[in-house]
Design a protein around this nucleic acid. Structure first.
Lengths: 217, 217
DNA sequence: TAGATTGTTAATCGATTAACAATC
DNA sequence: TAGATTGTTAATCGATTAACAATC
């Protein structure tokens, strides 16, 4: 009897994996072949055991004494995060943030393939932004139904967010990368990853204050 | 003897506070005056006790039966996160992401005041992006020394990130909001908040996979 | 008053860290 | 071989959740 394991990966682990990934890419560039958890931990200011545990999730096998083969580990992380298979994505909202998303060529490295963008502004419709065509928001459903689009990036103002999300879901989208600062009400079969800049900013600004508080003692 | 408490706030709490904040703004718009932890929790799909604990960090006092006064709670969160006091900030790297940051007018709502942007591209220097002047990267130090700049937003390619960080720090910057996908090597008196998009994307793409794995059982 | 909600202490859960045998 | 490193189990730490008296 074969063992089936689908332990869900802790979010902190998922957030650290890209950090390992980027470090590994740079080590590889430098012509290095192997790396140990000790070295990764030192570079990223983490605990070696934690690094090993995280890496273990990707199901790669290391070798005592030498550590992990860098190329293999890169591949392993890519596969684990599905960054090695292309997914069709759409962007809704071509404001400054949306435009940046389309311009961020690197997304193809993460398997994200923008096939269309949507907006309600008449003057934008039909134009191209960084090589991606902008369609009328009202045509969202049929376009994402046609190409099998799984990921929707939401970069509209709060007022328009829920409607945009609803339309995406009706078109068959399974996961929403939400940059609008609000909670989307969706069926629990739909995945929402909130990526509001304000979350990260809150961590920064509060920690600055706490740093000052500590110093003033 | 006065009690001095400087318990550092857990990061998960800091990440949730902006979510409360945005919800409260919308409730206030609707003319609602008070809200209970139960309601907040329901809206954001959290545990009521957790909401109360988080809110407690901001040192507001609620009232049994009625909950919290929305205006007071908004003010309390803003103060706690230092979003009510302006901080001078600079942006380094005016690529698509950097441009989006400057265009994101909302930052002023979070107390972030961009006084300058920097790049090495000759053709950009002297121009304005969304009302913010672009300076030569080499002049970074003197400009940030002049205006008391505390926060630096780093949106340059990996290769340029460490040098840019070093220069910021020499100019007196205390905190770096890092969008470059690499670990910055800085003195431990300097605060670095990593905000790589790939971190959030990793959570999304892996969770999609785990959702499929679960469904296929 | 009765009942809902806060503030807070205690219990639980999960992630991080420590310890160490197995291994190359 | 000796020694560094992995893989894994156990201990610790911290965040989440439960329980409940105080309170409006």
């Amino acid at each position: 009897m074969k063992e089936i394991k689908i332990r869900t990966t802790p979010e902190p682990t998922l957030r650290r994996l890209p950090r390992y990934y980027h470090l590994l890419l740079r080590l590889k560039e430098r012509g290095i072949n192997d790396v140990s958890s000790t070295v990764i931990a030192k570079e990223l200011d983490l605990d070696p055991t934690q690094v090993r545990k995280d890496i273990e999730y990707t199901e790669i096998i290391g070798r005592p004494k030498t550590g992990y083969n860098i190329s293999d580990l890169i591949k392993s992380i890519r596969t684990f995060l599905s960054w090695d298979t292309n997914s069709n994505a759409v962007l809704v909202g071509t404001g400054s943030l949306g435009t940046a998303m389309l311009g961020y060529k690197n997304f193809s490295k993460y398997g994200l393939n923008f096939i269309a963008a949507f907006d309600i502004k008449k003057e934008l419709i039909g134009k191209e932004i960084h090589g991606v065509k902008v369609y009328n928001f009202n045509d969202l459903k049929e376009i994402i139904e046609k190409d099998k689009v799984t990921i929707g990036v939401l970069a509209v103002p709060v007022e328009a967010a829920q409607e945009a999300a609803d339309k995406m879901i009706k078109g068959g989208i399974k996961a929403i990368w939400n940059y609008a600062p609000c909670q989307l009400k969706v069926d629990n079969s739909i995945l929402v990853e909130n990526a509001q800049l304000s979350q990260s900013l809150a961590v920064l600004t509060r920690k600055i204050t706490e740093l000052y508080l500590k110093e003033s003692l």
